[in-house]
Amino acid sequence: MTNKTFHTTETAWCPGCGNYDIVNTLAGVLDDMRFKPSELLLVGGIGQAAKLNQYVNANGFSGLHGRALPAAVAAKMVNESLTVIVNTGDGDSYGEGGNHFLHNIRRNVDITHFAHDNQIYGLTKGQTSPTSDSCSVDRTGACNLSKPFQPLLIALAAGATFAARTFSGNREHMAKVMKAAIRHKGYALVDILQPCVSFNKVNTFGYYKEHTYELEGDYDATDLETALLRSMEYGPKIPIGIFYQVEKPTYHQQRPAIYDGTPMIDKQLSQDTLQTFLNKFA
């Protein structure tokens, strides 16, 4: 522990929660990638997953439920040199924050979004989330009578340049996908299957272990059609891996006249420039 830069602190999560694997893996990834804590900004909304930024020694922004993305992209907009990572729940990302999810994919700001998908509302004690499974006859607990939300399919349809799924119980896979997502230039979504031991008695650690499998070694992550088809595969078999990754101009790259790498705080408008501009109204 001593030669590591990133460490985690005591948490308020239930023992056995999938979030522990996520935070520990993330701290390892950040160490491996040799980030400085002060260059990193971890953003969350509100929920169990969203608390993650409080448990890692980096800059942290805990915003409102559902509103992590707008705050995160704006922080990145005004300071490109920050590495911005959002950790927040499925309810936060796809329910309350659904509109922001759609439109920030379109903006392609260079941030990373780890959606801790426990298919349940954890913090509010077990209500159905957008990604909860469909209700079956014998299903007990939270389930969807509405059609379940398909994060990867929707992200791809909205034009995501990086869309992946991993499972918190497969730490090696998760670390690999996290690194690729953080390195990706542009908005990167990783839907992380995360067991909630207290409220989701169906999608458990054992359930995910049994149902998930990795995308094939020769899978072509640059082919959108394949990615769309494979993202619809969700049932007895759940593929994990990077479904799609392409390079497209980021938010900043599309506006070269405004962004040259200098943070907004260092780009103050001079009084002379403004005075000259005022004279145009004479």
Binding site: V43, F61, R67, P70, A74, V78, N99, P263, M264
Partner: peptide
């Protein structure tokens, strides 16, 4: 995309200086 985003963006930007 909506006013909720507008204010939360402004707050993220404000936090970042």
């Amino acid at each position: 995309e909506d006013e909720i985003a507008a204010i939360n963006m402004a707050l993220g930007a404000s936090y970042a200086g």
